[in-house]
């Protein structure tokens, strides 16, 4: 009984001394952190993807809390409206949020369309393959298929389709943080406007060679024939540097360019399937 009492008193005293020390230390080294930072951080996705250009979500929250204007601060990965909520916390004006974007792959050179004249057996890294030349594809602009974008994506939104050898973007998971854009050594990936109900049209080719050379390299290459630009009634398509580009802001999703493209280099996503118009008497 006696021993138990002594131990309780001794340990209790030790505890009290320890807590006083800790209290003192915490008072001495207390850092005043803006409470806004914690509140903002709770709104952020917390994946530290770096899409905002900062080293992580906490860094971004600190930048928001200390900023005098939110114009240059955008978290591309968070849900729509997050910047407005952050603006409410900081008492600043948020820039009108951009429309949601998604990563699109500007290469359609699947295994069956792209002629291959050599076999690349080096390390499975697009950066290395690109530094060694054209790797196994004939096209020096096209996707290398080693998956640098897959490993760069913190949202598991990109995977390589084994049948085509090209990356596929899961648009529900993609937050348009831009990590894949930076990782691709051939700058094939573009962040494009997602479009109404996800409907969008883009040129799935990055080949800047003359048409005759491009078509030899890949059956799905943009040959810069200009048919799409002439067909487009909204002036959305420009052909420069032997490559067509569709301005997502001007495109009205009429799909005329898709039908006219001789190589099928223009792709679309999320359009409802074509109705079979039956010609009945």
């Amino acid at each position: 009984m006696h021993i138990i009492l002594i131990s309780i008193i001794a340990l209790g005293a030790l505890g009290i001394i320890g807590s006083i020390m800790l209290w003192g230390v915490s008072r001495r080294f207390h850092v005043d952190e803006d409470p806004k930072i914690g509140l903002i951080e709770q709104l952020l996705p917390g994946a530290n993807c770096g899409g905002c250009g900062r080293s992580g979500c906490h860094d971004f929250a600190r930048a928001c809390a200390g900023a005098s204007s939110l114009d240059n601060l955008i978290c591309p990965a968070s849900e729509p409206g997050t910047m407005q909520k952050i603006a409410a916390i900081t008492g600043l004006e948020a820039k009108k949020s951009d429309e949601p974007k998604v990563a699109v792959i500007r290469c359609g050179g699947s295994c069956d369309k792209r002629t291959r004249f050599s076999a690349y057996d080096g390390p499975a890294s697009c950066a290395v393959a690109n530094s060694l030349g054209a790797a196994d594809g004939n096209c020096p602009f096209g996707c290398l298929g080693c998956g640098d974008c897959v490993s760069a994506c913190k949202w598991h939104a990109i995977s390589i389709d084994p049948s085509s050898g090209l990356p596929v973007v899961d648009e529900d998971a993609c937050t348009a943080c831009g990590a894949c854009v930076k990782a691709c050594p051939r700058s094939i990936i573009e962040l494009r406007r997602k479009g109404p109900r996800g409907m969008r049209i883009w040129v799935a080719c990055s080949n800047r060679e003359k048409g005759a050379a491009a078509i030899k390299e890949c059956k799905a290459a943009c040959i810069a024939c200009g048919k799409c630009a002439r067909t487009c009634s909204h002036d959305a398509i420009t052909v420069s540097g032997n490559l067509a580009y569709i301005d997502p802001q001007k495109c009205r999703l009429c799909k005329k360019c898709i039908d006219i493209c001789p190589t099928g280099a223009i792709l679309s996503a999320n359009f409802p399937p074509k109705k079979n118009i039956s010609t009945t008497e």
Binding site: S118, L132, G133, A134, E209
Partner: peptide
Amino acid sequence: TVKTPQGL
């Protein structure tokens, strides 16, 4: 335009 040995 021609190909270099590296295929570029």
